[in-house]
Structure formats: structure tokens, C-alpha cells
Design a binder for these strands. Structure first.
Length: 189
DNA sequence: GTCAAGATTAGT
DNA sequence: CTAATCTTGACG
């Protein structure tokens, strides 16, 4: 049994936590079954100073979780279709978060596949929306405490061998500065 | 009440 | 390249 990532891990700047999350295990328990995956791609979002962040224009009911304590989930629905999972980081009130964009399935692959359907199993968990579908994560998990080891949490794992790539974030809008920031991190494959 | 836009994805 | 699909937040 690997170690649950403690609150302290998340109580740091998103730009530190994001690359540190690469290689860690995302664990989802559903019907007593473990669905797990190794995190291979993430993006950091800051608060008031990041024009691409949902928190840029201040707190609203939807992004409230981002303004809450670290180590909790921020889950939102995008385009009326897909859910996206974030981990809140930094001191409470800073509204920083790390978007989990992709995992490499480790346990419960069959159950993940079942959720996604045969036709799309090739692209099982690459992309924030597909990842949430495979792990059955939705807005009921918004605000969920990830440090309890219940339903959804993260576990420590060895730091990856492969180099870490960084690049501008995917699919964002915002000012030039936001678009230029290389706050997407991925494990080279 | 109305309305435009969105941290995506799959299909043409 | 574009449709799908619906919640949210801004405006009034």
C-alpha cells in the first residue's frame, strides 16, 4: 500500500505541485474496486494573475472550490459534455489548481473500458474529459477532500525516469502572457 | 429572462 | 474544421 499524498503536498504553489504530480497515482474506488492510473500530463492554473484561469475574474458559485483549502477537488463541466478534474493547491484563498489531463491506466482497466465503450478504448485516458469518464468522476466530486483516502485520492509513487516536458497549456483563452506560459507538464513517452 | 462562450471530443 | 450539448455568469 502506497502512501496517501498528505495535505502538505498540495499546500504549495501550483507551479511546484503540477510537475510533482507526474508519476503519482490517481486512485478512484467504485463498488469496492480500485481504478488507478499514473498521472502523465497536468496543467497549472493560478488565481487572480492568470487570465486563463477560471478564478481570474473572482469567486463564483462554480469555481468556489478553487478558493477553498488545498487538497480538495475542483470538478467542472465543460461544453455541457465533459467533466474535468483539478486538484486545488496553494494556501486557501489563492485559487490555484492543477488540471489532471491524462493518466496511464494501471488498475481496473476493464472497468474503465466498459465506461468508455469499445470503439474508443484506444484513447482511453488521454484528455481531461475522457479521464473523468473512465474513472466516473463528475460534479458530485467537486469539493471532495482528496486527503481522506475515500472514493478519490492520490498516492505517492516514484519520480519518473523520463524527462519532464513543458509547453503552453491546451485549449485556453486569455491574454498573450497566459498563452505563452509553459504551464503544461507531461512525462516524455 | 436572455444569451454567448467554454481548461473538450469525435467525426467529416 | 465543425457539431454536440448545457451550465454558468453577465446584463438588465
Amino acid at each position: 500500500m502506497t502512501a496517501l499524498l498528505p495535505r502538505d503536498f498540495f499546500t504549495r504553489d501550483a507551479l511546484v505541485v503540477a510537475p510533482a504530480l507526474l508519476g503519482k497515482l490517481l486512485v478512484r474506488e467504485v463498488d469496492g474496486m480500485r481504478l488507478t492510473g499514473r498521472i502523465v500530463e497536468v496543467e497549472a492554473y493560478l488565481g487572480a494573475e492568470d487570465a486563463a484561469s477560471h478564478a481570474y475574474r473572482g469567486r463564483t458559485p462554480r469555481n468556489a472550490s478553487m478558493f477553498g483549502p488545498p487538497g480538495h477537488a475542483y470538478v467542472y463541466l465543460i461544453y455541457g459534455i465533459h467533466h474535468c478534474l483539478n486538484v486545488v493547491t496553494g494556501p486557501a484563498g489563492q485559487a490555484q489548481a492543477v488540471l489532471i489531463r491524462a493518466i496511464q491506466p494501471i488498475e481496473g482497466l476493464a472497468a474503465m473500458r466498459m465506461m468508455r465503450g469499445r470503439a474508443t478504448m484506444r484513447h482511453l485516458t488521454d484528455g481531461p474529459g475522457k479521464l473523468c469518464q473512465a474513472l466516473r468522476i463528475d460534479r458530485s466530486h467537486d469539493g471532495h477532500d482528496l486527503c481522506l483516502g475515500q472514493a478519490l485520492w492520490l498516492e505517492d509513487a516514484p519520480t519518473p525516469n523520463a524527462p519532464i516536458l513543458s509547453s503552453p497549456r491546451i485549449g485556453i483563452r486569455g491574454d498573450e502572457l497566459a498563452l505563452a506560459r509553459a504551464w503544461r507538464y507531461a512525462i516524455a513517452s
